[in-house]
Write a protein that binds this DNA or RNA. Structure first.
Length: 825
RNA sequence: GCCCGAGUGGCGGAAUGGCAGACGCACCGCACUCAAAAUGCGGCGUUCUUUGAACGUGUGAGUUCGACUCUCACCUUGGGCACCA
C-alpha cells in the first residue's frame, strides 16, 4: 500500500462532486431550523493569505457542524471590492481598477475553491458591481429621505505634497504614509450619516449581545462614550450674548476660574471684534485650522491659548472670569465651550499653570483643605464641597444633583447626556467607490437621484493622472446631468462613499442576492436574519460592527428587517503569526496558502490551522506542525484502509453486553469522544481540543488493532464515528474513507452522532488518595462507591497509614469517583 | 493616563476549585533497512542520596482540606481608547 494518500485526486474529486450535485445550496425551508454562518467577506487584494484560510476554516467547521445537526445552513461568500488598493494599482501599473479587481477576484475564487469550503456560490456577489452598489446608493437615499444623511463643511486630512485627501488610516503620526509630508487640514463640503441619532440604542442594545466577546462590547461602549452632566449658560460682560457650556462636574462650578472656547466657536469673532487682540486671535484660529486633527488632539501636544479680553459671569456666584480660547477644547464635543476648574481637572491645571490663572479648591479630599498655592496635581476624586456657598458639605455625587436641580429651578441649565460618538463622514474624494447619488442644481439646490434612476454608474474607462486626484472630476459625461426636479442643467456629486457603507448591509443581501428591485427580499431576510455566527478579525471590532449595527437598526425602523441586531454571536479570531510576528511581506515571513495546499492538501492545511490554537487566540505558524497534521491524516488513511474489507458489510450491533476489557474501553472511548467533540464545537468553539480528542480516539483504535481477538462491529462503530466527527475539519479525506468502508451516501449528509449515556458508565474508576492535599496513591474502586466505604478504604490503605502514623486525623474529604483527601496533623 | 486580555516543559497548547503538562511538534532510544528516508514501538518538567522524594503554572501575600484556576498587590507583555470637559 502507498505510504501517503493521494490528496490531490481525492480533494479534486469531492470538490467536483459537491459542486455538480448542488451541495450547500440552500433555500428557505420553514420545516427546518435555520442557521446563518458568516465570515467577514474579503477585500480582493489578489492573494489569499493565512488569515483568510483561518477565518474561512473556522466558519466552515461551524457551517458543516450545524448542517450535520439538522439545521438549514446559509453559508455564503462575496467580495468587498471597492477601496484604495485598486486605485493605487491603477496609478502604478495603469490598469483600470475594475479590471484589476475582477482579475483578483478570479484568482482568489480559485484559491478559495481549493479549500473545499461549503459555500453556496450561487449567492456570491461583488460590491463594486452596479447590481450591488445600486442598493448601496439606495441605502444612501433612504437615509437621506429620513434626514439621516446630510452635508456640511468639515475638515479633511490633506497631503500638500500629493495634493490629495487622505483617510485617517493613511495618516501615520501626523504625516502622509506615502510621502511623509505633514498632513494639513482642509475644509470641504462632506456627506455624513447621522449615526449619533442612534447612539443611545447602539449603546443600550450592547447589553443584549451576550454572544459577543466582552472585549468587543467594552470597546464599543468606550467608543460611544456616554457621559452624564449638564449644560448651562454664562452671561458675557457688556454683551447680550451668552455662552452655553457642558460639564460632567457641576459640583465644581464654584471652582471655575476661567472659561475656554474652542477656536472654531462661532462666538469668538463676535467677542473679539474691534479689540486690540483681534489679529492675534485670528492668527491663532488660522493656525488651528491647518493643524491636522491627529496632531491637535494628541495628549502630547502642548496646551496653547489666548485671552480674548472679555469676561463671563458665573451664574452661581456672580464672579467675573476671563474667557480664553485654547487648542485643547474641541468644537464638536459638547457645546465647544467649557468652564475650567484647574483645582479638579488635570488639563485645566496644566493650562492655568502655564498662563498664571488662579486655582480655587472646591472639593476637599481629606481632613483639612489643601492650600491652593501648594497644588501640583488636580484632584478629581470623591470629597466634600467647600467654598461653594449653600452647597458646602455635600459629597461630589450629592453636589452634582443639587447643582443641576438649582440650575433647572433657576432656568440656568439642564441635565444633559453627551456621547463621544461622532457622525459618520462617508464622503471620499476617491474614484473607486459607489458614487453618492446626489445632483446639484443651481435652481433646486441639492437633489437626490430618484430611486428609479439607480444605479448612478461609475464610469469605468477613466484616465488616472499621477496627481492622485479623483479622475471623476474630469469625466464630463458623468458630471453633467439634468436635474431630476426641474430638468435643467445640473452637476453630479463626484465624491464616492466610504467602503464601509458597502459592508454595512451586505449580510442582508445574502438572503436574496438576486433581488433586483430592492436590496433584499423581506421574507427571505426575515427567514435568515440575524446572522447566527459571525466570524472575523478583531480589527473590525469598532467601525464595521458599529456601522452594521446602525444600518440594521435603521432597516428595522423603516420596516425592511425584523431584527434590531445583525449578529447574534461574534467570534473574533486571532492573528496568524510566524516567529512571533504578524505575517507580512515587509517582514518576509509570509507562508503562502497555495504552497501549503499544493504540498499537503486542503485537509492538512485546515487541520493544522484549527489544531494549533483555539480560534480566538493568535496562532503561531509551524511548518513542522503542518507536517504533524499531515502525518495524522496519513495514519488515519492507512488504518481505515486496513480495516476496510473486514468491516464493509458488518452491522453495528444494538446489544453490546459482555465486552472484554479492551473492547469495552474502545466502546467507551468512541462515545466519550462523541460527547467531547460535540461539547467542544457546540459550547466552546474549542476546535483544538476537539481535534485532540479525535486523535485520542484514533490512538485507542490503533492500539486495539494489535489485539488477537477483536470485535470488528465495534471497530466499525469507532471508525464511522471518528470519520463523522472529523468531517467538519477535513471533509475530503472523510468522504473518500467513508466510501471506502462501504457507504454510498456522502458523509457530509450524515446526521451528527449521539453518544450513548450507557457507554459512558464504567465499572471502575480511579480515585486519588491524598494526605493534606498531596497525592500519595491511586486506587481503583467500583463506580459510585458510597462515601463511607471510600473513607474506610483510605484509612486502611498502607501508604496512608504510613504517612499519618502518629498524627491525628482531623477530617476526611471525599469527592465521589474522584478523590479522597485525609487531613492529618 | 484610562479600559480590556495574556503569562504553564525546548515549542504550540491542555486542565476554570480536585491526579499540572492531555493532544501535537521537537528531541532521545529501539525495530525495519546495506544505508538513509518513510513507517512502527518506547521514552521525554527540574533536581536529588532515583523501587522513592523534594520542587514546579510571571512575583509576593491571602482564602481553602485542596489553587494554573478564586481575592488583593506588583512585574512583564499584547491590544484598544486617548486633551471628549
Amino acid at each position: 500500500m502507498e505510504n501517503r494518500y493521494d490528496f490531490r485526486t481525492i480533494e479534486n474529486r469531492w470538490q467536483n462532486y459537491w459542486r455538480n450535485n448542488g451541495f450547500y445550496q440552500v433555500t428557505e425551508d420553514e420545516t427546518k431550523p435555520k442557521y446563518y454562518s458568516l465570515e467577514m467577506f474579503p477585500y480582493p487584494s489578489g492573494n489569499l493569505h493565512m488569515g483568510h484560510v483561518r477565518n474561512y476554516a473556522i466558519g466552515d467547521v461551524v457551517a458543516r457542524f450545524k448542517s450535520m445537526n439538522g439545521f438549514n445552513v446559509l453559508h455564503p461568500m462575496g467580495w468587498d471590492s471597492f477601496g484604495l488598493p485598486a486605485e493605487n494599482a491603477a496609478i502604478l501599473h495603469n490598469i483600470p481598477p475594475a479590471k484589476w479587481t475582477s482579475s483578483n477576484i478570479e484568482i482568489m475564487q480559485e484559491q478559495l475553491k481549493t479549500l473545499g469550503l461549503s459555500y453556496d456560490w450561487k449567492r456570491e456577489f461583488t460590491t463594486s458591481d452596479p447590481g450591488y452598489y445600486k442598493f448601496t446608493q439606495w441605502m444612501f437615499l433612504k437615509l437621506y429621505e429620513h434626514n439621516l444623511a446630510y452635508r456640511r463643511s468639515a475638515g479633511v486630512n490633506w497631503c500638500p505634497s500629493c495634493h490629495t485627501v487622505l483617510a485617517n488610516e493613511q495618516v501615520v503620526e501626523g504625516a502622509c504614509e506615502r510621502c511623509e509630508a505633514l498632513v494639513e487640514k482642509k475644509q470641504l463640503e462632506q456627506w455624513f450619516f447621522r449615526i449619533t441619532d442612534y447612539a443611545a440604542r447602539l449603546l443600550d442594545d450592547l447589553d443584549s449581545l451576550t454572544g459577543w466577546p466582552e472585549k468587543v462590547v467594552t470597546m464599543q461602549k468606550n467608543w460611544i462614550g456616554r457621559s452624564e452632566g449638564c449644560q448651562f449658560n454664562m452671561a458675557i460682560e457688556n454683551s447680550s450674548e451668552t455662552i452655553s457650556l457642558y460639564t460632567t462636574r457641576p459640583d465644581t462650578v464654584f471652582g471655575a476660574t476661567y472659561l475656554v472656547l474652542a477656536p472654531e466657536h462661532p462666538l469668538v469673532p463676535i467677542l473679539c471684534a474691534g479689540k486690540d487682540i483681534e489679529k492675534e486671535v485670528h492668527d491663532f484660529i488660522n493656525k488651528m485650522e491647518f493643524m491636522s486633527d491627529v496632531t491637535r488632539t494628541s495628549t502630547d501636544t502642548e496646551k496653547e491659548g489666548i485671552f480674548t479680553g472679555t469676561y463671563a459671569i458665573n451664574p452661581m456666584n456672580g464672579e467675573k472670569i476671563p474667557i480664553w480660547i485654547a487648542n485643547y477644547v474641541l468644537m464638536d464635543y459638547g457645546t465647544g465651550a467649557i468652564m475650567a476648574v484647574p483645582a479638579h481637572d488635570e488639563r485645566d491645571l496644566e493650562f492655568a499653570q502655564k498662563y498664571n490663572l488662579p486655582v480655587k479648591i472646591v472639593i476637599q479630599a481629606g481632613e483639612a483643605c489643601e492650600k491652593e498655592s501648594d497644588i501640583t496635581e488636580a484632584y478629581d476624586g470623591d470629597g466634600i464641597m467647600v467654598n461653594s456657598a449653600d452647597f458646602n458639605g455635600l459629597t461630589v455625587e450629592e453636589g452634582k444633583k443639587a447643582v443641576i436641580k438649582y440650575m433647572e429651578d433657576e432656568n440656568i441649565g439642564t441635565a444633559t447626556i453627551n456621547y463621544r460618538l461622532r457622525d459618520w463622514l462617508i464622503s471620499r474624494q476617491r474614484y473607486w467607490g459607489a458614487p453618492i447619488p446626489i445632483v446639484y442644481c443651481d435652481k433646486c439646490g441639492t437633489v437626490p437621484v430618484p430611486y428609479e434612476d439607480l444605479p448612478v454608474i461609475l464610469p469605468e474607462d477613466v484616465a488616472f493622472k499621477p496627481s492622485g486626484e479623483s479622475p471623476l472630476n474630469d469625466v464630463e459625461e458623468f458630471i453633467k446631468t439634468n436635474c431630476p426636479n426641474c430638468g435643467g442643467q445640473a452637476k453630479r456629486e463626484t465624491d464616492t462613499m466610504d467602503t464601509f457603507v458597502c459592508s454595512s448591509w451586505y449580510f442582508t443581501r445574502f438572503a436574496s442576492p438576486h433581488t433586483s428591485d430592492l436590496p433584499f427580499n423581506k421574507e427571505a431576510a426575515d427567514y435568515w436574519m440575524p446572522v447566527d455566527q459571525y466570524i472575523g478579525g478583531v480589527e473590525h471590532a469598532i467601525l464595521h460592527l458599529m456601522y452594521a449595527r446602525f444600518f440594521t437598526k435603521f432597516l428595522y425602523d423603516i420596516d425592511m428587517l425584523s431584527s434590531t441586531e445583525p449578529f447574534t454571536n461574534l467570534l473574533t479570531q486571532g492573528m496568524v503569526l510566524k516567529d512571533g510576528a504578524k505575517m507580512s511581506k515587509s517582514k518576509g515571513n509570509v507562508v503562502s496558502p497555495e504552497d501549503i495546499i499544493g504540498q499537503y492538501g486542503a485537509d492538512t492545511a485546515r487541520l493544522f490551522i484549527l489544531f494549533a490554537s483555539p480560534p480566538i487566540r493568535d496562532l503561531e505558524w509551524s511548518d513542522q506542525g503542518v507536517e504533524g497534521s499531515y502525518r495524522f491524516l496519513n495514519r488515519v488513511w492507512r488504518l481505515i484502509n486496513e480495516y476496510a474489507n473486514d468491516i464493509k458489510n458488518l452491522d453495528i450491533p444494538e446489544n453490546i453486553d459482555d465486552l472484554d476489557g479492551a473492547t469495552k474501553e474502545l466502546h467507551f472511548k468512541t462515545h466519550f469522544t462523541i460527547k467531547k467533540v460535540t461539547d467542544d464545537l457546540e459550547e466552546r468553539f474549542n476546535f483544538n481540543t476537539a481535534i485532540s480528542a479525535i486523535m485520542e480516539l484514533f490512538n485507542t483504535l490503533n492500539s486495539y488493532k494489535d489485539l488477537p481477538k477483536q470485535n470488528l462491529a465495534l471497530v466499525k462503530e469507532a471508525i464511522e464515528s471518528l470519520l463523522i466527527l472529523l468531517t467538519p475539519f477535513c471533509p475530503h479525506i472523510c468522504e473518500e474513507l467513508w466510501e471506502i468502508i462501504g457507504n454510498r451516501e456522502s458523509i457530509t449528509l450524515q446526521a451528527w452522532p449521539k453518544y450513548e449515556a450507557e457507554a459512558l458508565i464504567q465499572d471502575e474508576v480511579e480515585v486519588v488518595l491524598q494526605v493534606n492535599g498531596k497525592v500519595r496513591d491511586r486506587i481503583k474502586v467500583p463506580t459510585n462507591s458510597p462515601d463511607e466505604g471510600l473513607r474506610q478504604i483510605a484509612l486502611e490503605n498502607s501508604r496512608i497509614k504510613e504517612l499519618t502514623k502518629g498524627k491525628k486525623i482531623v477530617k476526611i474529604i471525599v469527592v465521589p469517583d474522584k478523590l479522597i483527601n485525609v487531613v492529618a496533623k
